[in-house]
Nucleic acid binder design. Structure first.
Lengths: 242, 242
DNA sequence: CGATGTGTTGACCGGGTTCAAACAATGTGG
DNA sequence: CCACATTGTTTGAACCCGGTCAACACATCG
């Protein structure tokens, strides 16, 4: 077992242990959600934090003038609702993209439980810290990668998220439309479609026989190589064989 | 006194009270930094959190392949170092852009102090929450605003940051080069320069007599109007008189 | 079946990058 | 003090990536 696999196992175990810790320490409300359901909405008074036990959720930030932007994608083990702590109101909409189970609990109850079990506080802080780090990585990608590389980076992050949770990474089912992916990545749906086509043409990804939402990733490293090839390098070949 | 001013005073007081609370509850290390000094670097073991007592700091995220990106700008009262909590290592470089005083303290010491004074924990969580909210607003701006509007938004945010700290907002001194601003906003230095020129041509901003780093903002609302004018509207006039 | 939502691909255009030149501000050493 | 180098800023001109508009392909579903 290599280091990467070991880390994968650790991440998966970390999530499982975090969730059982929470379950034991707190009164937790469970809710089954389906695609389109909202966990919370911008402007609602903040009282609860959320953790995904299963499923897949997008977080949408909405500007006063109507501009809206998918600013986060979340999977099993991810916390949601942090943005409400400071202002007392949630700052974004959280919308389920698939059937799943959401756990929620009162923030004040969590703080009380943390006084008894300091490890809970560690979990909370680590989750917030990871969120900050992810957001910064998103900004880096948005600002420094061309469109094709951004799509490749998106797929790689998705595959890594699955890997961390012990799921197979060679086949992923995008539960987002091209338009949603484009919004998340700061480009149009046409550009997403073209980027995916180019990735497929270079055999970095493959489309499953049925439907264009299922994507096979034979080698995740190929995605990284493609990203490098998109940039200054010029050496590597970003599927440039027309 | 209008609501906006009241909120401004509250924010300024909040910062001052936060800092005295911390100073009383914790052994705090103070350090005077000058432009170019690093508070911490990516990869260093995480032990401390930082708060700016004065000065101005940028946070730079560095990718493995060399891409780098300014992902945060911080002023008095802002916390730094959150990204190190989860992984045990700082994820970015924090670099002073101006002379200032940085307070730092051990994270474990803070947690111990939080057990005695729960209000400290509230401060910590609010700071992390605000950071997450700011990052998401940055993503929204990066993805949905054209270059000129992004520059205007940048100036507006800067002015608001000053206002929150009780400083005058009609004149700001950018301590960043056009290249640094461009990196932060995901555009080239030439585009930043042109955007500022257009803003000045539309009298939304004015350059101080000496040097192009000092910018006067007669009316902050004009920046918001300019941003609106840049977008779909077409109604409002984004300084379009050639 | 048509209707609707989604995805792909082409042609064209425009905002922003790239390349280049000139200018401004600030130092540095003779 | 001036000559000169260095760094930052502005502006122009050409190019190109990605957006826009449009047409078509496909799937699902009533």
């Amino acid at each position: 077992m290599n280091a990467s696999t070991a880390q994968t196992v650790n991440a998966s175990q970390r999530i499982a242990e975090s969730m059982s810790l929470l379950r034991e320490a707190l009164p937790i409300q469970r809710r089954v959600v389906h695609a389109g359901d909202t966990l919370y909405q911008a402007g609602e008074p903040f009282t609860q934090l959320f953790i995904l036990n299963s499923g897949f959720v997008k977080v949408v930030n909405l500007a006063a003038d109507g501009r809206e932007q998918v600013v986060g994608l979340h999977f099993r083990g991810d916390w949601l609702g942090f943005d409400g702590i400071a202002s007392g109101h949630y700052g974004c909409d959280a919308i389920a993209m698939d059937t799943g189970e959401v756990w929620s609990f009162r923030y004040d109850a969590l703080l009380q439980a943390c006084a008894q079990k300091p490890v809970l506080l560690t979990l909370l802080h680590e989750a917030m810290s990871r969120e900050i780090g992810r957001d910064r990585d998103s900004m880096l990608a948005l600002c420094t990668l061309p469109a094709d590389a951004r799509v490749a980076d998106f797929l790689r992050n998705w595959a890594e998220a699955l890997a961390e949770r012990g799921l197979r990474t060679d086949q992923i089912t995008l539960r987002m439309t091209r338009a949603e992916i484009g919004n998340y990545l700061g480009m149009t749906l046409e550009t997403v479609s073209r980027a995916l086509s180019r990735l497929a043409r270079g055999d970095v990804i493959r489309f499953a026989e049925k439907g264009r939402r299922e994507i096979q990733i034979p080698r995740v490293e190929a995605l990284s190589a493609f990203i490098q090839g998109c940039m200054g390098g010029g050496a590597a070949n970003p599927a440039a064989v027309h």
